[in-house]
């Protein structure tokens, strides 16, 4: 029995050599159809629910809930097009902005054309998050 267990461990460690390691950067992208999320944490990537909305009341609730949490640097990058990003009803500067974790309404707009709208969930205890929006999709 001991011999079998030892060979099983050996096989697993051999497999470990064969499987390529994850990229050196932080977490890989969590991509939806149009939006990819890049988090500074390996384990927490966040989520983006397309076409979802947050009412003013829910935004306030969420803000109260996350009040004591550490800020997260949020940046939005728009690829294959142009536009401006709005988070919880406010223009997001090109350089990004510090924001509390939790749920936020995100809207990307090119003039009167709505590029994307949804609810972004930012996990706690991460330093930064980049939202990549593919405007052409």
């Amino acid at each position: 029995m001991l011999v079998i267990r030892a060979s099983f461990i050996f096989a697993l460690s051999t497999l470990g050599f064969l499987v390529p390691p994850p990229p050196a950067s932080s977490a890989g992208p969590d991509c939806g159809e149009q939006v990819c999320l890049y988090s500074s944490s390996d384990e927490k990537s966040g989520s983006y629910k397309v076409d979802a909305k947050l009412s003013k009341k829910n935004r306030r609730k969420e803000a109260k809930k996350q009040k004591k949490q550490k800020d997260v640097e949020l940046a939005v990058v728009i690829l294959d097009g142009r536009g401006s990003a709005f988070v919880d009803g406010r223009y997001l500067p090109k350089a990004g902005m510090a924001i509390k974790p939790g749920k936020h309404e995100l809207e990307i707009r090119d003039g009167e054309q709505l590029v994307s709208r949804g609810v972004l969930s930012i996990p706690r205890r991460i330093d930064s998050m980049t939202v990549e929006v593919h405007a052409d999709r």
């Binding site: 009412s55 935004r59 406010r90 223009y91 809207e107 090119d110 003039g111």
Partner: peptide, 22 residues
Amino acid sequence: AQTANDIAAYLADERNYKNSDW
């Protein structure tokens, strides 16, 4: 000018304006 247009169009939307504190 395009960014001015984006923000203006966003705030011209009745729901966005009502829901925003900014």
